[in-house]
Write a protein that binds this DNA or RNA. Structure first.
Lengths: 240, 240
DNA sequence: AAGTGGTCTAGACCACAAG
DNA sequence: TTGTGGTCTAGACCACTTA
């Protein structure tokens, strides 16, 4: 075990928990001093990792009692997940694939919806990306996104069918800082209805998000229409 | 400024930001060393508070550049908010009121829906609470919740029309630890449809949650049906 | 009283962006 | 090179649960 940082410790803890190597009969983890010694990290690093695990629903910590692993939330997407949606679906044991994708140049003024940030010029060049994505072969979501062409330059065909998130992160000079997400419900629009095999106007779970660089500059904005019968989002709210 | 802890610092920062007392012309906050000196806290406490502010969408931090205040998300409920829903609505400048409420004893087996935790006995005594809640006088959501009678004993009429969250927190021997939330979309059921003046089967934004004590014990589970035209949820996802 | 997690201090070093 | 935020160490004290 050599010099774990927080990210590595999180992975290691998840692996060790899933292997059942850490918990006793009551799903209780060793106390923090023991874990610190075992993984050779200080309390700060350990607790950063345990906080991540709590937010993802893996564990909870009871003051004065101990740290316990929880039954896994099996069918919901954790809003606190790391990495892209594809990776999160993999955690749930499902495979997310892109069945159809197309990209075309456009401008902000011509987009189907607008970002909340109003500082973009109407003729700001965008790359419009429409994708149909399936979960284990079943239609799952339709995604309409707009990438700022001044930042991302071009999106190769291969990236469209893989993880656009990973593609962006791999670019030089592009470091994603955070993503704003607005979760809502809307009547299903026609394009999405056809793909999801649902009537127009049926319930639809919608996520509208805006991706910002670590400098605070807007990189992209998008809207995802999920099949309401399949998609659920999960989060843990700590109370203090 | 006397001995601020994290919670107090968060409040103070929000107040100072809203008063415009902290930011320069570019919405930039003073650097961390300055803030530490100003509020007389260490970097740990300061950064805990700034992290909270980031998650609530008040600010963002740009590595190597500085900390900036963001335009406020005006019409969305922040999933990272502290306290109850009533308090969060107040932040948005709206008033959440309960227009109708009723409580009745029941058991787990008779509940309309079940918690994910399966360790509750079928005859576990519950208090069923149904509430209709309005935002600024307009019908906003219907809530069906079940409180475990072995823990909460009784719910007075007054609490039903106020904040049940605050009522529980105020009880002796009851310390809320965390709340699991599953966000989804469903066809609007009839009871909620009547209240919200929407057709049955219309889109509905649903939050199903489970409230746990800090000891890990289940306190309550509930389902809230929001008017999809009014309710949106907001969150910030950090990427590293 | 003992052992657990929760908070906070003080300080070091690293990574990033801009001049 | 300078100044910013990001990560990590080491250790103290507090609050809670259980015995």
């Amino acid at each position: 075990m050599t010099q774990l940082n927080t990210a590595a410790l999180i992975k290691q803890l998840i692996a060790d928990i899933q292997a059942g190597a850490l918990t006793d009969a009551h799903h209780k983890l060793p106390a923090e001093p023991e874990l610190m010694a075992h993984y050779q990290v200080t309390r700060y690093t350990l607790r950063q990792a345990l906080q991540s695990l709590s937010k993802m629903g893996y564990t909870y910590q009871a003051h004065g009692v101990g740290t316990f692993v929880r039954p896994q939330q099996a069918d919901s997407i954790a809003l606190a997940h790391h990495g892209g949606l594809t990776a999160e679906m993999a955690r749930l044991g499902s495979k997310l694939t892109t069945t159809k994708a197309q990209a075309a140049p456009t401008t902000r003024a011509q987009a189907d919806f607008q970002p909340s940030e109003t500082t973009l010029a109407p003729d700001d060049p965008l790359i419009a990306v429409t994708r149909l994505r399936a979960k284990d072969g079943q239609p799952y979501l339709m995604e309409q996104s707009y990438y700022r062409q001044t930042i991302i330059k071009t999106i190769p065909e291969a990236a469209l069918y893989g993880s656009l998130f990973n593609y962006c992160e791999a670019q030089r000079d592009i470091r994603i800082g955070w993503i704003d997400q607005v979760i809502m419900s809307e009547p299903l629009p026609q394009v999405a209805a056809e793909y999801l095999n649902l009537p127009v106007g049926a319930p639809c779970l919608v996520v509208q998000d805006e991706t910002y660089l670590s400098t605070g500059e807007l990189l992209a904005f998008s809207k995802q229409y999920y099949d309401y019968r399949q998609a659920k989002f999960f989060m843990v709210k700590k109370v203090h």
